[in-house]
């Protein structure tokens, strides 16, 4: 089976967040993920895409299908060039919020995926990579 090539979506408005969710949903379906897996990944997408729009001054989401040692996966990379996160450990704590949210975005998304990686530097931006395997 040939995997679809990676693609990148803009994240600038709250409508873009909806489009990102829908794109991830279709991709997960195409790769044969079950409904619960789809819902978890789509929910994580919504949290991270919103972070990029609201806190990262807009950014992008890269979506990639993977096949490694017979496993099928989807990897998403959320990248923004916003102010960055000064204290990542703190930002990953449930209930911590820098703004108007519930503070579940980062920590919550981490629990919804199999792999979670975050890089952030003040004044340079933030990159969050998540992967879910089938």
């Amino acid at each position: 089976m040939s995997l679809p090539g990676p693609e990148t979506l803009e994240l600038k408005t709250s409508e873009d967040v909806v489009r990102a969710r829908q794109r991830v949903r279709v991709c997960m379906k195409d790769q044969g993920f079950g409904l619960v897996d789809q819902t978890k990944m789509v929910t994580a997408t919504s949290e991270l895409a919103r972070n990029a729009v609201d806190y990262g001054l807009g950014g992008t989401m890269r979506i990639e299908s993977l096949e490694e040692m017979g496993r099928i996966g989807i990897r998403l990379v959320f990248l923004d060039h916003g102010p960055g996160i000064p204290d990542i450990d703190l930002a990953l704590t449930d209930g911590y919020t820098s703004g108007h949210g519930l503070g579940l975005g980062l920590g919550g998304s981490k629990r919804l995926v199999n792999e979670f990686e975050i890089w952030s530097k003040p004044d340079e931006g933030t990159r969050v990579t998540i992967t879910r395997w089938r």
Partner: peptide, 14 residues
């Protein structure tokens, strides 16, 4: 609420 949504919000921490 759909079952898959219920499972997800619990893990999310809602």
């Amino acid at each position: 609420m759909r079952p898959a949504v219920a499972i997800t919000i619990v893990e999310l921490g809602l």
